[in-house]
Design a binder for these strands. Structure first.
Lengths: 136, 136
DNA sequence: CAATTCACTTTCATTTTGCAAGTGAACTTA
DNA sequence: TAAGTTCACTTGCAAAATGAAAGTGAATTG
């Protein structure tokens, strides 16, 4: 869908990411999935940035359409929906770590812990491995 | 300005980047500055994605407010304005390269040349050095 | 079986976007 | 030197996206 030429503005790689993730909210959902262990609609709502329910629903739908997340039912309780990163979604990890690195450097008020920011500079591969392991 | 707590939604590092660059257009301007040697208003207008003049003016202003670019006059012709990346802007390069890597992998129609995509996987530091050198 | 929780959907006012046209300063041509 | 032309924007307006709040329906709990 994102890949057909009528829909896309171009096939520049920067633009390709923007078509899927280029707005103020989508990457925050990826962050919650990747770093905070969140998996449910209600959990995403609780983040500091206070996303509205309609925007969250729209973004989850688009992420699913772009195969960055998959939606399933919680095996333990039929009602609850679970959202999880696909392999394509997990592949965003290096981007997320570089973003964290940049913001830790340029935001004087960053909430990135100093020791994590330091480890990020020297040990990115090990951090990535840890985070991927935590996602199973 | 972006750093004051009334304005920002949070000081999460992912959010910090989104506050400065989180929309469908801003990163394309950074791309043009970083990879395509573009420096002038009229040059940004010519990209494939066809940004409107009012949106371009607004994004350039915001990038300047966030100290990601600086605006100056062309020393050779008094009238023309030049836009250039600051050090903070150049620090976005690792993010841009990771984005390129991700899109080259996941966009079947990517216009990233295969040899560049290959070199990106093995030789990211050398590519980064080349690009920074080209920016002076 | 009534109340609550969860995951959305709908409504609607406000904000942002995008196209087109307009403006003004410098520069080029007749 | 007067008349375009180019460049870098700004303005106006219709259309689309956003955000707050309320509503809906399925499951779960008391």
């Amino acid at each position: 869908m994102v890949n057909n030429s009528e829909h896309c503005r171009s096939h520049c790689p920067i633009n390709f990411l923007l078509e899927a993730l280029g707005d103020k909210w989508t990457l925050l959902i990826v962050r919650d999935l990747m770093f905070k262990g969140k998996k449910r609609f209600g959990e995403f709502l609780q983040s500091d940035e206070k996303i509205a329910t309609n925007i969250l629903a729209a973004r989850l739908k688009k992420l699913e359409e772009n195969h960055i997340i998959i939606k399933s039912s919680d095996p333990e309780s039929g009602s609850m929906r679970l959202y999880q990163l696909t392999d394509k979604g997990k592949d965003l990890l290096p981007i997320m770590l570089e973003i964290t690195d940049w913001s830790a450097k340029h935001d004087a008020l960053t909430n990135t812990p100093p020791d994590f920011a330091e480890r990020l500079k020297t040990d990115k591969a090990a951090i990535a491995a840890d985070i991927l392991a935590a996602l199973e």
